[in-house]
Amino acid sequence: MRKWIYWLVAIAALAGLQASLKGLIGAYNYQIVILVGINIILAVSLNLINGVTGQFSIGHAGFYAVGAYASASVVFYGGPSIRAAVAFLPAMAQDGVLLLMGSFAAAITAGLAGLAVGIPSLRLRGDYLAIVTLGFGEIIRVLILNLDVIGGSRGFSGIPQLSNFFWVYLAVLITIISIHNLVHSSYGRAFVSVRDDEIAAEAMGVDTTRIKVMSFVISSMFAGIAGSLFGHYTMYLHPNSFLFTTSFNIIIMIVIGGLGSIEGAVLGAILITIILEVFREFGAMRLVNFSILLVLIMLYRPQGLLGTWTLFKKRDRAAPAN
């Protein structure tokens, strides 16, 4: 019961901020806040594969793209009929329904893509898996580049703006809580066991291939949702938004924050997004300065800023009541 009250409070707070935030911090900062939210979803979800399950994927932008285009297509082509079906609702609620349907389609499509990539490739380890996922990301991008129904190389324009601070941060909350719960369940222990020692995990009855595919699919679904929110905020999608550098930026976020830590992924996403914005004033030197910063962090804090520190230590490590 208490759970629902927390959710109601959170939704009210988000709605309140939604109404006032843009006026308070200005349109430019508002856009950065949105971008931070989307990157948090991407980083926290990728952390499930790379940090918790210990598989090295560098194709997260691929799933992000699949979600973005799937949702945009559903809303662009199916929007009028969906709106007609829920015409009795006020306009804002109609937008919400559209966005939810788009995001649902995004999650399913990205999840299926994750399944299709995961089943054959998760038998591979380390570098080999990294190469396959990198290849997958590029295949998706080139595929989109050549699909005219979704804009091809011209980009997909005319996507209605449906997402905003409220939806993005609601998704952020849902992502963080879902993945936190998952990591602290029996499944979470299975994920970590695969990371620590696959042979021992198998001997303890953990079907390691299944667990890896599971973590991959769940992570992809959240990346798909992030894509949906992104497309419906910028109203325009282009394959160049989903280059492999996008995947690398997400990896940087989770490594800087501390691989395996959800709090670290959140912190990393916030820092990297803001730093990349702030460094714009360096112009051409932006990425050079960014790289120097990364090198320094890795030199002085190789375990990431937060390491394996977690906010929730007390609850998880409490002694059992007998």
Partner: peptide, 14 residues
């Protein structure tokens, strides 16, 4: 072959 990054309890729970 223990799960090194898990606690003693988590190893058994797994």
């Amino acid at each position: 072959r223990l799960f090194q990054s898990m606690t003693v309890l988590e190893n058994v729970k797994l």
